[in-house]
Amino acid sequence: MPVFSYLAYPEQGAKEQLLKDLSELRYCEITPAQNEELLILLTDTPDEDSEKQLQKKLKALDSLQSLGMAFGHMDD
């Protein structure tokens, strides 16, 4: 079902923590920038409910300042 990609901005100095927090979440693939306080987050959830649960968990992360969406796809 849904595939999204985002730019994930960590809170000040929390890039490593954010990397760790996101790595612990299901359906998330993370690619950290080497030279910026920034990560790419790719989410690939099996259905809408898992997507909703994941969104809730993302919102609750203290290490995450904000997400900027770059791509979304929903199978017909």
Partner: peptide, 27 residues
Amino acid sequence: RRSFIKLMAMNSAATAAATLFPGVSFG
């Protein structure tokens, strides 16, 4: 097809990052 879509998703994010942060590198 799914892998392909994920590749596009990654590509879009990396392109956006490169526009906002010129010189950003993702290894």
